[in-house]
Amino acid sequence: MNDKRCKVCDEVLPNSDSSFFVACKKCGTHNQVGSGSALSLACASSALILYVPANLLPFMSLEVYGNKNTSTIWEGIVTLSQSGSWGIAIIVFLASILIPFAKLIILFYLGLSAKTPGQEKFKTRLYNIVEAIGRWSMLDIFLLAVLVAIMKMGPWAHAEPGAGAWIFALVVIFTMIASAAFDPSTIWKNTYDKKS
């Protein structure tokens, strides 16, 4: 039985080839019915393209007592490590460079190969890695909280987000959409179709 059911009330949803979300006629909940691999691939591709300028352009300008310093994410990591703040430097590196890049590469690969038969267990493991990494996405919000705290230092310091910060925010948004849109059942769909 290939009927999609409402995630809230378990009502059978109407078939729709043109919509990604369908509203349940019984409870009104919007349910994802499309595979989402095309949307996930498009968002992951967009985020990968934006990832490069997000890391190359200045992330923040900080002015302390009249001395202005503009730096990229990587320059900020280097400065933190040189000042002895290794723990914070590692957190920033993981949250801003390594984890987003790994997540984007996996989402791009899954979006590209989800409907292609073969290696279903490997693809499922990759999807589970993305889900596990997703739990650590709150680190981005932690970094934004630190940035806001720096910006509110009053007369001692003045901080302004650079172009890299705005582009990085777009990377985060596209990554979240790519992750939410991907339907892991498409990995196994070809296997089920062969059996029936």
Results as ranks from 00 to 15, higher is better:
S113A: 15
E75M: 04
L48T: 00
M1D: 13
S71Q: 06
L13C: 02
I49Y: 03
M60C: 04
M60I: 02
A165C: 12
M60W: 06
C27M: 07
I106W: 06
L57N: 02
K4Q: 14
S16H: 05
K189E: 10
I105M: 11
F59A: 02
M176Q: 14
T124I: 05
T191E: 14
I49K: 05
P184Y: 03
K121R: 09
A132M: 05
V148K: 11
I49C: 04
L57Q: 01
G154I: 00
K195T: 13
K195C: 10
F182T: 01
A42R: 03
L62M: 10
T186C: 15
E63R: 09
W86A: 15
S45P: 01
E160M: 13
K195Y: 13
H30V: 13
T116W: 05
L80M: 05
L56M: 08
K123C: 00
L143F: 07
A180T: 12
S179E: 08
P155H: 14
L110H: 02
T116L: 11
L144H: 07
S40T: 01
I150R: 09
L112S: 11
Q82N: 12
I73D: 05
G34F: 00
N15F: 15
K194G: 12
S18P: 14
P117H: 03
A145F: 05
L112V: 12
N128V: 08
S16I: 09
K25Q: 14
S96I: 01
D193Q: 11
E131C: 08
C24F: 00
M1W: 13
K7Y: 07
Q82W: 14
G111E: 06
W188C: 13
T79E: 12
G36D: 00
M60L: 08
N15E: 14
L139I: 07
L80W: 01
L57K: 03
I167T: 08
A38W: 07
M1T: 14
A42E: 06
I150Q: 13
G87K: 04
L126V: 00
V78Y: 02
G28E: 04
A89W: 00
K25S: 15
C6I: 00
G28C: 02
I105W: 12
V64S: 08
I88D: 09
G28S: 04
P100G: 03
T186N: 12
